[in-house]
């Protein structure tokens, strides 16, 4: 079974050895191999080329490959470390590692900062926060007057922007998250602790490789 698996993986562009990825992430070798099963499913759902395209992420998240979403776009961009328009296996595992229950909280906080820093200026700016609030209202079919949105954004921003310079820097973000820990709730995926149980058919073959 191990040989069958190895033969297929070597043909996949961007494939990296599970031992290397396990050393750099909170995952064990078996868990990385189980993640490869998930990766194969995701990366073959629209274009069967062993790489995750944006449409494939959208399909997995929304059951609709054409549904655009500001945050799904940002997640895709952050996973696509090489910025070549696709998510490779190594990028997938390293990025998901931040979502592991055992990953450092600092990494989770940093990831959310980058997620919300829409224009990648190194700061979360007021206009970005307003844009995100408006995107959520649109996504949720909720209507709020512009005055109410402005008030919510102002209040949140003044609480987070401790230095009062009109932008939230990484230190201010860290402080704000420490006061509001639910902000990184999405950054922990309990599924990742049981990833080998989620894909039990694969555990049989990984046990052979782990014992080698």
């Amino acid at each position: 079974m191990g040989c069958y698996h190895s033969k297929r993986t070597k043909e996949t562009p961007g494939y990296e050895e599970p031992t290397v990825l396990a050393a750099e992430t909170p995952f064990t070798v078996s868990e990385v191999e189980a993640l490869y099963e998930l990766f194969k499913k995701l990366s073959s759902s629209v274009i069967d080329d062993g790489l995750i395209h944006k449409e494939e992420l959208q399909l997995a998240l929304f059951r609709n490959k054409n549904r655009r979403n500001l945050f799904a776009d940002r997640i895709f961009d952050l996973f696509d470390v090489k910025r070549n328009g696709v998510i490779e296996f190594g990028e997938f595992v390293r990025s998901l590692g931040v979502f592991h229950p055992n990953a450092p909280v600092e990494d989770k906080i940093h990831f959310t900062f980058r997620l919300y820093d829409l224009r990648q200026t190194g700061f979360i700016e007021r206009e970005e926060l307003k844009e995100m609030v408006l995107a959520i209202l649109h996504e949720s079919d909720l209507l709020l007057s512009d005055d109410v949105v402005e008030t919510i954004v102002d209040k949140t921003f003044s609480d987070a922007d401790l230095k009062g310079d009109g932008k939230i820097d990484p230190e201010e973000w860290k402080e704000f998250v420490s006061k509001n820990p639910s902000l990184i709730k999405n950054m922990t995926l309990p599924y990742l602790k049981d990833i080998t149980l989620a894909f039990p058919s694969f555990v049989l073959s990984t046990e052979v490789e782990d014992s080698e």
Binding site: L38, F71, Y116, V133, I136
Partner: peptide, 25 residues
């Protein structure tokens, strides 16, 4: 209770909830 815009974003955005990736089995 104070309405925190970031909390609103993180709790409401389906694009920021990756748990559905694991339901593709």
């Amino acid at each position: 209770r104070f309405f925190n815009a970031f909390e609103f974003i993180s709790s409401m955005s389906s694009g920021f909830d990756l748990s559905s990736l694991f339901e593709t089995k």
